[in-house]
Amino acid sequence: MDAIILQILNGLDKGSAYALIALGLTLIFGTLGVVNFAHGALFMIGAFCAVTLNRLFSLSFEVVDPTKLDFLGNPAKIKTAYVEAWFGQDFGAAIIDWSVPLAILFSIPVMLAIGFAMERGLIKHFYKRPHADQILVTFGLAIVLQEIIKYFYGANPIPTPAPSAFTGSFDFGAMLGFDVGQIIYPYWRMVYFAFSLVVIGAVFAFLRFTTFGMVVRAGMADRETVGLLGINIDRRFTIMFGIAASVAGMAGVMYAPINSPNYHMGMDFLVLSFVVVVVGGMGSLAGAVLAGFLLGILQSFASMNEIKSLLPGIDQIIIYLIAIVILLTRPRGLMGRKGVMED
């Protein structure tokens, strides 16, 4: 029992990332009808927003302190971060410590801008082109974005720590009444899961309870009619593209402490997220979220040693296997609507 709970928990953080990326992919697909292969790159850029902010905060200047000597006997140089100098020692250190959560605020405008630029500059011209062309052009864009990041940040993963308040792990098992030390779970992963629930909830609430969301949902159902009613649906869809981009970006920001960001992390996630979208049902937002968590948890179950010894290599291929089975038996996915993108 405790092993099962542990695996479910382990699957949650990856599942959250899948769910967030897949949610954005589905939003873009549902509104604009575009298959966006560059969505993984947006996730990656989000993670690098965290890296950037961390570096910005850590920018420092050196002062030579003649009263102290370093171990070579020279006057010691003392590094002080600008934020510490401006806001005082404690507050400045706290800012640096909390740079990852703060990066969410930083990433939203950045990702919105990137999203708008992408949609207006490129995707707009591909509405009427075949899906194959959309796949290819966004694939090319993903490579370009990836290479640009590689130029600025290098090819190696960059460790980006979570706030020290969230480092370490807590004994989840003891809280539920199991033996101490059975279910240990890192704090930050719990934070990630909670964060993803909040974001998912916010997106759903936005679509469900605001006038803007209502128009967008109407546009997803029948774009032409909404256009005939005198509503500028293109503009709203552009905004939705920006929102999808920032959802991917936020997912990336918060993921940075879990896995040190590198330039190809987006590609690694993208293939799996597409599988998630297909399993959940193309165009179904709830399906994307459900399938994201489901596949994340299944993947973590498949990487248990007991299962791996039974079926070697299953952890590597489980997601693909499930996708293949789903596509063949229930083409519209878990929660896809009948007749929508079934073929």
Partner: peptide, 10 residues
């Protein structure tokens, strides 16, 4: 080169 390849793609 990868950057160029991506640009050619697009």
């Amino acid at each position: 080169w990868s950057l160029t390849l991506g640009l050619i793609f697009m």
